[in-house]
Amino acid sequence: MGAGCCKEEAIDFDGEIELSHFHLLRSVGKGAFGKVRVVQHKRTKEIYALKYINKTKCIRMRAIENIIQERRLLEEVEFPLICNLRYAFQDDENLFMVLDLMLGGDLRFHLERAGPMKEEVVRFYVAELALALDALHSRRIIHRDLKPDNVLLDEHGHAHLTDFNIAVYYSPAKPLLSIAGSMAYMAPEVLLRKGYFESVDWWSLGVVMFELLFGKRPFRGKSNDLLKNSILRDPLPFPENAREILCERDIKKRLGCTPDGLNGFKKHPWFEGIEWDKLVTKEATPPFQPDSKRANFDATHELEELLMEDNPLKAKKRAQTTPETELSNVLIQSTVVAFFVLRMIQK
């Protein structure tokens, strides 16, 4: 008696995708533009990562254009070494993106847990990331925020590029001028504000490579000014046999930016033995496999969701329009229109 009151409502899986189609599992991440938790599709049983951001917060942070841009980029990109978008939807409070789940954790987590990595491990990650960057650049997309935090491992140990919050399209005829990204990984051409293209991603890859090898970044400073000065002027503290892979200030000599492009990477002696074709298909065996019996992420994210979240995530029916939700929708829609009008003008 009374058992029927707890019966779950029937779900229309053939209708528009919504949060009720997923089981909400543990929280695994938090960033400037939203939170991430593991979800399972109730019908297919597939496991994904759910990235979500509160609409009101999105407007307050003036992040609408970033979210629109990220979704649009991910809808156009499909590559084995990128965290690909599988679904995108919204409810009255949040914007959602359902992405490939990577159970192996990010490189920042592993770097802090185990310290500097062996050369063969770093070589493998750098090669996979080079392929991911080349896939983006072939579509005229710059990531602009490559760092260990934004590289996720799958359960087998393959590296995947994620977090396209500040990724952007570019035109070879019009260099970008805006400063974007994490300063410690910014290329000199970004800091000098003289215009830049996809070369900045190859610089960032060099900084990541150095950090994974030595457990510290190559350029440091106690203030932004000192850090900037270090990036622009300090001697390059790199092994001679891999200097041009790491951080070459002369863009014309920087690996990845030469006329050979990705082939320059493939031919470099440091990558001898890498089976590039097998990396793309994930047939290559990673030199490190994350421990599946341990949580490969910071457990405090889950505690925060349980203990400190005033409005925990749960599936809700779309409510009738209120003045507040109407304002939110108008602001988002007007930004979308303005964004695409601007894109048409630029073309």
Rank of each mutant, 00 (worst) to 15 (best):
V208E: 01
I11W: 06
S223N: 13
E309C: 12
V77Q: 02
D291W: 06
G206H: 01
E309H: 06
E76H: 10
I17F: 03
L176Y: 05
Q40K: 15
D260Q: 14
R243I: 14
F271R: 05
P239L: 15
L85R: 01
L131F: 06
F271N: 04
D225W: 11
Y196D: 04
Y52F: 12
R139V: 04
K314N: 13
A114C: 10
F33V: 04
M61N: 09
C257E: 06
F265L: 10
L24G: 04
L279P: 09
V77G: 03
K194S: 12
A167L: 02
Q333D: 15
K35Q: 03
H137W: 11
L81M: 13
W270I: 00
G181E: 00
E46C: 10
E244D: 10
R140I: 05
N150E: 09
L19F: 09
M102D: 01
K266H: 13
L19R: 04
A130H: 07
S292H: 15
L307Y: 09
H268M: 14
D225P: 08
A63S: 14
K30S: 06
E78W: 11
A127S: 10
L227T: 08
V77D: 03
L279Y: 00
L136C: 02
V28M: 13
V208M: 09
R60M: 11
F22R: 01
Y87G: 04
L236V: 15
H268R: 08
Q69A: 09
Q69K: 08
A284C: 08
E211L: 04
S334Y: 13
E76T: 11
Y169C: 02
E272I: 08
G261R: 07
F33K: 01
K282D: 08
Y170L: 09
P287K: 12
D250L: 09
N224R: 12
A187R: 01
R144G: 02
D106A: 04
V336S: 10
I47L: 06
G4A: 11
L303G: 11
E240H: 10
V207W: 01
A127H: 03
W203R: 03
K228D: 00
E120K: 11
R113Q: 11
D234Q: 14
T335D: 13
E70M: 03
G261P: 08
L191W: 00
I17P: 03
E198P: 06
W202T: 06
S27P: 08
D291M: 12
R72N: 10
S20C: 14
K347N: 15
P323E: 15
R254C: 02
T285G: 04
K118G: 15
F124T: 02
K147M: 10
D154Y: 05
G261H: 06
V38W: 04
D225C: 10
K266V: 09
F164C: 01
T162V: 07
K57G: 05
I345N: 13
M186S: 05
K147H: 05
A49T: 01
R343G: 12
